[in-house]
Amino acid sequence: MSQQAYIAQIGGVPVLVLKEGTQRAFGKEALRINIMVAKAVSEVMRTTLGPKGMDKMLIDSLGDITITNDGATILNEMDVQHPIGKLLVEIAKTQDDEVGDGTTTAVVLAGALLDEAEKLIEKNIHPTVIISGFKKGLDAAIQYLTKIAIPVDRDNIDVLKKVAATSMHGKISETVKDQFAELAARAVSMIKEQRGDRWIADLDNVQLVKKHGGSLLDTQLIQGVVIDKEVVHAAMPKKITNAKIALLDAPLEVEKPEIDAEIRIQDPTQIKAFLDEEENILRGYVDKLKSIGANVIFTTKGIDDIAQYYLAKAGIMAVRRVKRSDIE
């Protein structure tokens, strides 16, 4: 219902409550529209499920084409305008963030529940009564799922692989699904840890590094940390076993003075003494690192050319300008 809402005239002047052109729907009509929108979005998603599920081809305003059957991707690309449609997009996003799978199911289930709710509303059953019924249904569903659930041993890689492969279905090429499931299961089993009486796998401990040029089959799991940086000097060792790593948050360079300083030199030998002192400072840094037994150095700052030379001479591998997050 479209209308301009006015409060009774005060002193002959009408008072505008809602701005002009506001659309207003209420009662059964509003419920009907909301349910219709939700069912329309749900219908789009429904056909992607099952063995005969179809992919969707989405073309955006720039003409870019996306082909997918992943629920969250479809809803993101669809650019839904209606507020109820946006709510369903949020359902899919939340499901994707929390679980990583089941986005389509969540939206289709919401559509099916609203379809049933519509029939009950037509029988004059109040929405709050329907919601309390849904809550009882939820409790019953959780109870049943708990009853039929099979306990999984967290060290059983084969079962974890099956779980990973199921959630990858339709998101990745079927030819590499088994390999990726194996990598995912092994990665999670590496980072699992017990906190109190619960086992936790903190996914922030798994880093994904993307490289151009290879195929999906070139993907590998590395037990450690991958830092995508070049070694600073060609003469430094390229491989070190049993490394003792020094993590620095300071430059291996001669510090510049805080204020603008001017040094006046009368004698040419003073220049040599000045440069020698700079070299001695840098050599002192390297000697100190060598004395504690470090053979690999990661720093968030720079490394001077002279320091690089002495580090290479000492057989120490060094990497500069490493991201702070990697250091941490």
Rank of each mutant, 00 (worst) to 15 (best):
G137N: 11
K147R: 13
K161Q: 15
T47P: 06
E43R: 13
K119N: 02
M54P: 04
P83H: 05
M78E: 09
K272P: 00
Q308F: 01
K244F: 08
L217Q: 15
V176R: 13
I84D: 01
V254C: 00
M168L: 15
E118T: 02
G302D: 02
D202C: 03
L282T: 05
L120W: 00
T48Q: 13
I303R: 11
G53D: 06
T47K: 12
I281D: 02
V226M: 14
Y6Q: 06
G293M: 05
G27W: 01
M78F: 07
G71H: 09
R32E: 10
G21L: 00
N34L: 12
D304N: 14
R321Y: 11
Q266T: 09
K56N: 05
K290A: 09
D60H: 11
E29V: 09
D155T: 13
D218W: 07
P151L: 12
V15G: 00
D305S: 10
I265E: 11
K313C: 03
A187C: 12
R32L: 06
R198E: 09
V231H: 03
Q81C: 08
D202E: 13
T166R: 15
P14W: 06
F26N: 13
D326N: 11
A117T: 04
Q23Y: 07
D197Y: 09
E20S: 09
I245W: 10
A164G: 14
M54E: 12
T47Y: 08
D267Q: 04
E255W: 04
G293E: 03
Q95L: 13
K162T: 15
I148H: 14
V13A: 07
K211C: 12
Q23S: 05
G100S: 15
L58M: 12
A185Q: 05
V226Q: 10
M57A: 07
T104A: 06
D276N: 08
D97H: 15
L145A: 15
Q9N: 08
D228C: 02
L221P: 05
Q194S: 13
A201Q: 04
D70Q: 14
L31S: 08
A141T: 07
E174W: 13
A312Y: 08
A234P: 03
Y285Q: 00
